[in-house]
């Protein structure tokens, strides 16, 4: 069986991280599987998890009384999910639902925060990687907002 560490170092988000830093975050990690239809989290719940998606597909949704759940984005293999554990008041802003059988590594938010505080080098490295994700998501969201294929 693959160890958590081995799985982690092969994930695009963790790739290239110094071995001692990997060691640090492995301490916060556990393997979790979500059946299709199961929610990883829901809006307004307390956020204390960072998800590294191994396989499957997760829909980030927002519920509207008129149309039901609107899917904002789907994430899959190689993506990460969730940063509300990092930002006060540590509450999820959206729903996250497994569309397919989804395997993730779940890292405990409090544990990660503490390790980053105690080891600024890890903290900075972690933030750089997250910033990269923020940038990609923001770019994609901006293009999405243009409604490129809609009526002009």
């Amino acid at each position: 069986m693959e160890t958590l560490e081995k799985i982690l170092v092969n994930h695009p988000f963790v790739q290239g991280l110094a071995p001692e830093h990997v060691q640090l975050i492995v301490g916060c990690a556990k393997n979790v599987v979500f059946e299709p239809g199961k929610y990883l989290f829901r809006e307004n719940e307390q956020a204390n998890s960072f998800y590294i998606i191994r396989t499957g597909k997760v829909a980030i949704e927002v519920y509207s009384p008129e149309v039901g759940s609107i899917i904002i984005q789907t994430l899959g293999e190689g993506d990460i999910l969730g940063w509300s554990w990092l930002i006060p008041p540590y509450q999820w802003r959206f729903d996250a639902r497994a569309v397919e059988l989804t395997r993730v590594i779940e890292l405990d938010g409090t544990c990660l925060r503490n390790k980053c505080e105690n080891d600024p080098a890890l903290g900075y490295e972690f933030m750089k990687r997250l910033a990269n994700v923020f940038e990609q998501r923001l770019d994609a969201m901006r293009i999405q907002l243009l409604d490129l294929y809609g009526k002009k």
Partner: peptide, 21 residues
Amino acid sequence: VDRAVKNWTGNVGVVTTLIPR
């Protein structure tokens, strides 16, 4: 697709997000 509701089981997001992988 750029937008979808719950019954869609495919991808949501702009086409450029598919390129990295």
